[in-house]
Write a protein that binds this DNA or RNA. Structure first.
Length: 464
RNA sequence: GGCGGUGUGGCCGAGUGGUUAGGCAGAGGCCUGCAAAGCCUUGCACAGCGGUUCGAAUCCGCUCGCCGCCUCCA
């Protein structure tokens, strides 16, 4: 039943065929040249959601996310820092995966590195040359767009209307400005590889088409990435697949941009928000919630304010879960939640459902209907678990001395000895608990004061 | 110039031809010694102008604004 918007058809389509029990997914991963920013996290979190959602419906999902570890920018950076490209790539790849761990993103099943697949790329390039679809000129090998049967399927654009060179100078040696490099020759002093067309490096589009086909086969279920990959990257992958007579991806999906002040977050504008910093300030779960509460295809505004807002929402959920034990999840409610996700990953509606149950559960606690409240808690927990947002810490456990302090404080309160009561509160809060007096007694929660309210030098250890 | 997207209440952010999206923040109330929690109530929201309709924020037209892509980008 899962549906997803397919960039190719421009409509929401059935993602799974009847009887299908496996799902192969290729997501364009990072060029490991710098630290990830909030835009990168959204892509990874979105496909992590899709993967979990499909798997929990019984599908065996195979997720491949490539790592581009050879690239001009990596080399430039290495030169700037007087180190090797390999050192830059391995440093930022390590940061990438550690950061994704903190977002609650499961590692992909495969993470092919471009440098390990150069021979396979060379074979593909040779096939394209043999098919008269690619040509060799002075500085490399280019794909001849004119020989692609259907160029522009993804972009949906009349290519005679494009303005080549709008932003980048066109190599005049190419037969057509739209032709793109499969192999770029470089000086032997630079990082590169031997090939029939001289020492050089593979083109990015060739890297992904090669690794996806090699690892997932000539046809696979879904190819994904950010909106900005539609053109040229995915269009050009598809062009090569056509030339290679490979069916390639059955569906294409693209995630909307993260924006800041209404503008796409990108390095060239310089308005990036470092993902690791966001996680440090607000916690990985709050950042993940910030992503998932929006619809994945819409642009998403991200700032300290919106992240703080996300953390406040998360605290609302966690405070509720702290109020008591888990009972039995309400299957119908959980189904309503997952049904929303089934509908083109409609997480906003799913969260609307989730928060309804948080509110109902809180009301049940206030009414002292603890069994029903526990079932609500289990329901909400099951929803969170479905999307990878369940609390990662253990249930609230209260040490005996804190329980005693709570008891003593209750006594002091009854005696109207508020000085003692407040002193005991200080002890309890120092242990990391927050106190809430209700009609029926004192409840303890985890201290979840919003970190943004603290001076930034004290905000170094967000929860979880 | 071409193509695509978008404009929702203080903010984030869904949705849809007619019943409250949801969250955050704000206001009032309940509870309360206090308290960062919880519950209840509350906000002439749907860019503008026309049109279709019994009824439009939701459909159509026009106008305006913003954003993205047109070989760095997630």
């Amino acid at each position: 039943m899962t549906t997803l918007f397919d960039t190719m058809t421009g409509s929401v389509t059935q993602l799974i065929n009847p009887g299908q029990d496996t799902f192969s997914l290729y997501v364009c991963g990072p060029t490991v040249q710098d630290r990830p920013h909030l835009g990168h996290g959204r892509i990874v979190a979105t496909y992590d959601l899709l993967r979990r959602h499909l798997r929990q419906q019984g599908l065996q999902v195979n997720l491949v996310m490539n790592v581009t570890d050879v690239d001009d920018k990596i080399i430039t950076r290495a030169a700037q820092e007087s180190t090797s490209a390999e050192a830059i790539a391995s440093r930022y790849e390590a940061i990438w995966w550690e950061t994704m761990d903190e977002l609650g993103v499961e590692r992909p099943d495969s993470t092919p590195h471009a440098t390990d697949w150069v021979q396979a790329m060379i074979i593909k390039i040779q096939l394209m040359i043999d098919a008269q679809a690619a040509y060799v000129i002075e500085d490399g090998v280019y794909l001849r767009i004119a020989s692609v049967p259907h160029y522009g399927l993804l972009t949906k654009q009349a290519f005679d209307q494009l303005q080549p060179g709008n932003r980048v100078e066109v190599n005049q040696a190419k037969e057509s400005p739209l032709d793109f490099a499969l192999w770029k020759r470089v000086d032997v002093s630079e990082l590169g590889f031997d090939s029939p067309w001289g020492y050089g490096r593979p083109g990015w589009h060739t890297e992904c088409v090669t690794m996806s086909i090699e690892l997932l086969g000539p046809t696979f279920d879904l190819h994904g990435g950010g909106m900005d990959l539609i053109f040229p990257h995915h269009e050009n992958e598809l062009a090569q697949a056509q030339v290679l007579k490979t069916p390639f991806a059955r569906h294409w999906a693209h995630v909307g941009f993260v924006e800041m002040n209404g503008e796409k977050m990108s390095k060239s504008i310089g308005n990036t928000f470092d993902l690791t910093e966001a996680i440090r300030l607000f916690g990985g779960r709050a950042v993940r919630l910030a992503y998932l509460r929006a619809y994945y295809r819409s642009p998403l505004e991200m700032s300290e304010s919106t992240l703080n807002d996300a953390l406040a929402s998360l605290n609302r959920i966690d405070n509720f879960l702290d109020r008591g034990p888990y009972g039995r999840p309400e299957a119908g409610a959980v189904a309503a939640f997952t049904r929303a996700i089934d509908n083109d990953l409609d997480t906003p509606t799913a969260f609307s459902v989730l928060f309804d149950h948080v509110r109902e559960g809180n009301t049940l606690y206030d009414l002292r209907q603890f069994d029903s409240a526990a079932d609500k808690a289990a329901t909400v927990h099951a929803m969170l678990d479905w999307i990878g947002l369940a609390p990662t810490t253990e249930r609230l456990s209260i040490p005996p001395e804190i329980s005693e302090a709570v008891e003593a404080r209750q006594q002091a309160k009854q005696n109207r000895d508020y000085a003692t009561a407040d002193a005991l509160r200080a002890v309890i809060e120092a242990a990391g608990f927050a106190i809430f007096d209700t009609k029926d007694g004192t409840e303890l929660r985890k201290d979840r004061r919003l970190v943004i309210d603290r001076p930034s030098n004290e905000a170094s250890s967000p929860e979880n």
